Simulated assay, not measured.
Amino acid sequence: MGMIIELQQVALTYQSPDGEIEALKDVSFHMAEGEFVSIIGPSGCGKSTLLSLVAGLEKPSHGAIWVDGDIVTAPSPKIGLMPQRDQLFEWRTIWSNVTLGLEVRHENTPKRQAHVRELLERYGLSEFLSKKPSQLSGGMRQRCALIRTLATDPRILLLDEPFSALDYQTRLSVSDDIHSIIRQEKKTALLVTHDISEAISMSDRIVVLSHRPATVKAIHDLGELRLLSPMERRDAPNFRTYFNQIWKELEINV
């Protein structure tokens, strides 16, 4: 598999009322096409900022980011961003919510609509097209948010703590659903999370960042866990080994 995302010595310094703040320093890692990678680190270390840089919403102060062989200078249609909250509009039906990105891009064609209908059917949401978001469970809303992101057919998904607003039990179920959908759709995914268990249960590899200014402290390849579903991973004997190791790496920075 070829490299689809590559960061080389990425740094970001921004201005605040108190002066310059160094958010990221010398961050380097890569992702293969079809890989699921999580970024984890202390609160406020710049995890979401890193996603913004990959998405082309911000520009690094130093270093470079490549997506599919091109240096990132602006947002790309190859990338879909799924934010922390589902951001479904209550006054719109589920159908008009999941096709919103197509409307914005002026791509709401019959072919695209057929693709969205297929996704909704495949993932158990086709009977809720005329419903409003408040009529759906938290897990169903997250699936709708993901389908809205998938509707524009991006190759890469950037997930910014998409389960943080859900209760623990719902998070377990939804993370399993989302992981399954991403795998079935053969997408490359970069997830930001503060939850170590979530990162281990969903990822092929985990990038651990240090305290701000964030640098790459460690990269963990989860090896044989890659073959298991998120739920199955949580019962695997070496799950706790990975958890303890990453916890210690984060604890040093507290």
Rank of each mutant, 00 (worst) to 15 (best):
G56R: 12
Y123D: 00
D68Y: 06
D153Y: 07
G138P: 04
S130N: 09
E90N: 15
V192E: 03
V116E: 03
V192W: 03
T170F: 07
L158M: 08
L172Y: 07
G80Y: 09
L81K: 05
V104Q: 10
G80T: 07
A11S: 15
V254D: 13
Y123G: 03
E35L: 02
I21V: 15
K59N: 10
R143M: 02
E103S: 08
V98P: 08
L191T: 01
V208N: 11
V72H: 09
M231E: 13
D70T: 07
K217A: 14
N108H: 12
S173R: 02
F89W: 13
F36I: 06
M231D: 12
E90R: 14
G44E: 08
G63P: 11
A165Y: 01
Q113V: 02
S126M: 01
P83F: 14
L7P: 11
I21S: 13
L228R: 15
S197A: 14
E224S: 15
V72D: 10
A151P: 05
I156S: 07
T99R: 11
I5G: 09
I71M: 12
Y123F: 13
R92S: 05
E6K: 15
D204G: 12
T99L: 04
L88M: 07
L146D: 01
R117V: 10
R85I: 10
G63Q: 03
V104N: 03
I5T: 08
E6S: 14
L102S: 04
D235Y: 13
Q135L: 00
E22V: 06
I178C: 08
P42I: 07
L24R: 11
R205I: 04
I5P: 08
K132G: 01
L191S: 05
K111G: 04
F29T: 05
Q142W: 00
E249G: 04
I40E: 02
R234A: 11
Q142E: 00
L7S: 11
Y123A: 00
R171S: 05
R183A: 08
G69C: 05
D86R: 11
L53Y: 03
D18F: 13
W91P: 04
V254P: 06
S197Q: 11
F239Y: 12
S76L: 12
L150K: 04
L100C: 06
S180M: 07
G139T: 03
R117E: 14
P213A: 11
G2K: 14
T149G: 02
R105F: 06
T241V: 15
G139E: 03
W247M: 10
S76R: 14
H62N: 10
N253W: 05
A165Q: 11
G139Q: 01
K78A: 14
S126A: 13
P162N: 02
I206W: 05
Q9K: 15
S16Q: 10
S197E: 14
A55G: 13
V54A: 04
S229R: 15
K186G: 06
S134I: 00
R212D: 00
T152E: 00
E35C: 04
R212M: 11
C45L: 03
Q8N: 15
S52G: 09
Q87E: 09
S173E: 11
R212I: 00
I39W: 07
A114S: 14
I246W: 05
N108C: 10
K47T: 05
L222E: 09
E185S: 07
D235S: 15
S130A: 08
Q84W: 00
T215W: 09
M3A: 12
Q8T: 13
M140A: 01
A11M: 08
L51H: 07
A151R: 00
D195W: 02
W247K: 08
